[in-house]
Write a protein that binds this DNA or RNA. Structure first.
Lengths: 211, 211
DNA sequence: ATTATCTATAGATCTATAGATAATGC
DNA sequence: ATTATCTATAGATCTATAGATAATGC
């Protein structure tokens, strides 16, 4: 259920709040250390929820963490979608997508750290950026702007490079991240077949403003 | 110590064998599930080593798994090095490196599965492929074959894309992996500034044979 | 009356260590 | 004599559940 119906009554709202508190706690833990061997007790404490409540909502720790990743992916996808709303050129969309994602490491650190830890298994997921990016790749191929034989391979390269960029930020925090993101965006466009000078130009255009 | 001295006497050989058995077990576990919450007891059992021996060699589970990743990285670096021994052109080295890595998913599945689970944090490591790849990038830049402004960003893109390619194999096992690796190699060369037709040509050259 | 949450706890599991055993060095 | 390995175990921790409590629906 992409957008589940809002809770009908107070009972269901309370239940949803407990569930959401657990997911939030799991997201925090995934962002901080990524160490999922933390005890269920510790998770419940962090969520400020009774220990036994955990089992009303999740079968196991793994199930909770999986849900937490999906939650972060969805939020990530929505945020990028909003910022790219008015952008039509697939080359611009790809370049902006890379740079906006890097910028989100500052503005939405929790989401991006979750993805840094768990994103590799979700590059071709139905959630998050992948379906949007795949659409852009196909549009670009159709219009002749991109020349790639296999969109899935290109999407792998895009997603993997983006994760590596997030990781680089973590290991070299002093680096100019806006500049690094522009360089990466330029590389991605060249990879997709955009001429070098044009790739450089597009990668340096000002980012679209918020909604 | 990249290549530590060989054990001097039988005592030290026995000790080294126990340590290596634990590392092997950890590598297997990292390759199979990547789930490091497995008990030390289970690790020792798998290594066919007494439980208490673990603490003669490692301070904690995390320390063992870290060593296991480094062990796999070193073996990976050596294997690729051997196959690329006679290749001088940096463009060929990059393209072959990508394709050989993909091929190693079949010939050395344990190593590549370990890297798939843990490689993201080691893209800029001193061990493994990174120092070699960085050298190729610099050589290529110096000779004008590559046009990249920042080698670290290019290395991130290369490493991340490679990990994503390994992940893709896992999720789409029916795909022709040799063909996928060629496509990825072609994308990487274009990204680095090699003209599209040349990139395509290089990515389709026969791989260098074993030693 | 129903349902989720919370507290308490039994049983299982896990870690770290102590002490006995076995193998090698000199 | 020295050193690593192995076995046994104490103490801590963790999971899953049972039963009591609190909140809401009708």
């Amino acid at each position: 259920m992409p957008t589940s119906a809002p809770p009908a009554n107070r009972f269901e709202r309370r239940r949803a709040a407990t569930r959401q508190a657990l997911i939030r706690a799991a997201r925090q833990i995934l962002a901080e250390t990524g160490d999922t061997s933390v005890s269920i007790q510790a998770i419940a404490d962090r969520a400020d929820v009774g220990f036994g409540s955990f089992y009303n909502h999740f079968e196991s720790k793994a199930a909770l963490f999986d849900e937490a990743v999906i939650d972060a992916l969805d939020e990530y996808g929505r945020a990028i979608d909003e910022r790219l709303a008015g952008v039509d050129d697939p080359a611009e969309r790809v370049a902006f997508g890379v740079r906006l994602s890097a910028a989100m490491a500052d503005t939405h650190p929790e989401i991006m750290r979750v993805l840094r830890h768990r994103g590799l298994g979700h590059i071709h997921s139905e959630r998050g950026l992948s379906p949007r990016a795949l659409g852009d790749l196909e549009t670009g191929k159709a219009s002749g702007r991109f020349t790639v034989s296999d969109s899935a391979i290109a999407l792998s390269a895009l997603g993997g490079s983006l994760l590596a960029l997030l990781d680089l930020r973590l290991h070299q925090p002093r680096r100019d991240s806006e500049e690094a993101a522009r360089s990466m965006a330029e590389l991605m466009l060249r990879m997709l077949g955009v001429p070098a000078d044009e790739a450089r130009d597009i990668a340096h255009r000002p980012l679209p403003a918020h909604g």
